[in-house]
Structure formats: C-alpha cells, structure tokens
C-alpha cells in the first residue's frame, strides 16, 4: 500500500472516531432522557417514551439510516450534512437501547433510597440528581460499554451512504489496488483495536464510578455456583461483551432482566 492510500485510511479512522464520539454523546443524552421518562409517574409519559424505545429498538439501524438520508430530505426538503445525518441515525437508535439500560438501573436502586429522598422532601428532580442517578450510574457502565462497541460497529454502515469513514476508505483502497484480503484484514484489525480501546476506557470509568460510591469492582470470577442463568448472563466475564448486555439488552428488542 502506498502512503497516499494509508493517508486515506487514516482519515477514515478519524471520521470513524468522530462518528463514534458524537453518536455516543447523542445516544447518552437520549438514553438518559427517555430512560428517566420511562420512570415518570404519569402513565402517558411512560407510554410515549416506551413507544419511542420500542420503535427504535424494533427497526433496523441501516433501514433507519436510509430513511434519514433519502426520505427525510424528500419529505421535508431539508438535507442534513451526511456526517450529522449519520450521527442522528446512530444516536437515536443506540439511545433507545441505552434508555432501557438507564431505566433498568434506576429501578434497581433500592426502594429505601428513594423513600429516604421523599423523607427529606426532595423534589423529584433532586431525588434523581442527588440519589438515584449517582447510585445507578456505575451499574450502567458495563452495558454502556457493550453498546458503545455495537455503536462503533454500527458506524461502518455510514460508508454505504458515502460518508468517508474507515469502511469507506477500505473500499476505495480495494478499488485502487484490486486486492481485498489485505485491506479488509487491516480494516477488521483497526475496528478490533478501537473496540479494545473503548472497552479499556469504560472499565477504567467503571472502576472510578464504583470507587466514587465506595463499591469495589466485582471480579468476573466471583460467581456463585448454582446462581440462576440470568445472574450468570450478567456476570459472564468482563472481557468484551457480556451476552445479556450485548444481547437481550443491547442488540435485540428483548426485555430487561
């Protein structure tokens, strides 16, 4: 490969990183907004938030991306910059998965903690900010880790829309060199390294968050024999993707354990 082609790939990696960061930020905001709305006291609010989550978890990310790129401009005669259209598509889709994580973690906080907040006559907003979110946050990080990796993998889809990310660059290199094994192997390795970096970063974040509320990191090996399969799914090894997080939670429309 010539240096010019490498430069192309490096630019692609930079786009992939940007896409991942911006989409994750949007997804995080969406996740918190809708996750919190899912615990709202009015059923209609819960219902509407639930509709959003189910629609976006039910749809295919790629189809939704097509829709934003090709249908939205026609319907509203407003064309988004491809990069931002991609961020919107990824952020809204993975935000819906994240919302279920937020809801689950909030509901897992001990009821006594919520009651303590009521006893101190905190407003609902204060309860969330001062009691529920700080305690739920560390629990959200491992599933968020898996979601981030799924999102990273999802960014490759934007290449189909012509955004010049890593996957797009790989395609150009393939056309230039008329050779595919090498470039696609490199590309896979690049994504693998990016995923590894995300995982490491998230684990550091988790350690910090747990230390912040005085809880030690759980060792993956600390598994109780005979615990139910759901528990098992939860604890299986911190390496990259916990199946329940990647699976029943992140990647599919399945319910929360």
């Amino acid at each position: 490969m010539t240096s010019g082609l490498w430069e192309l790939v490096l630019k692609g990696i930079w786009i992939t990183v940007q896409l991942t960061v911006f989409s994750s930020a949007l997804a995080l905001a969406v996740a918190f907004a809708f996750g919190i709305l899912r615990t709202h006291r009015l059923w209609i609010v819960r219902f509407l938030a639930g509709c959003y989550i189910e629609v976006f978890r039910g749809t295919s990310a790629l189809v939704f991306m097509f829709w934003i790129f090709f249908v939205l401009p026609l319907m509203f005669s407003y064309q988004l910059v491809p990069m931002w259209a991609a961020v919107l598509a990824l952020g809204l889709t993975y935000g819906a998965y994240g919302a279920e994580v937020v809801r689950g973690a909030l509901q897992a906080v001990a009821p006594a903690q919520r009651e303590a907040g009521v006893a101190l006559s905190f407003t609902r907003g204060q309860q969330l900010r001062k009691i529920l979110i700080p305690q739920a946050w560390p629990e959200m990080i491992p599933p968020f880790n898996n979601l981030s990796i799924e999102l990273l993998k999802g960014t490759a889809l934007v290449s189909i829309m012509g955004v010049g990310d890593t996957a797009f660059a790989a395609n150009l290199v393939r056309l230039a060199l008329q050779e595919s094994a090498e470039i696609y192997t490199y590309t896979l390795l690049i994504y693998f390294v990016l995923a590894f970096v995300i995982s490491r970063g998230m684990r550091a974040l988790e350690r910090k968050a747990k230390a912040g509320i005085g809880r030690p990191m759980e060792k993956p090996a600390a598994r109780k024999p005979g615990a139910g399969v759901l528990q098992m799914l939860k604890k299986v090894d911190g390496k990259a993707v916990d199946p329940q997080h990647a699976g029943t939670r992140a990647r599919s429309a399945g319910g929360d354990a």
């Binding site: 990796i149 990273l152 993998k153 999802g154 960014t155 490759a156 889809l157 290449s159 189909i160 996957a167 790989a170 395609n171 393939r174 595919s180 696609y184 590309t187 896979l188 994504y191 693998f192 995923a195 590894f196 990259a240 993707v241």
Partner: peptide
C-alpha cells in the same frame, strides 16, 4: 468486536 459489514465485504 468487528463490524458485520466489513466481514460481509
């Protein structure tokens, strides 16, 4: 940990 899309290609 790598995209299905690239694997398809």
């Amino acid at each position: 940990n790598t995209p299905l899309l690239i694997q398809l290609f």
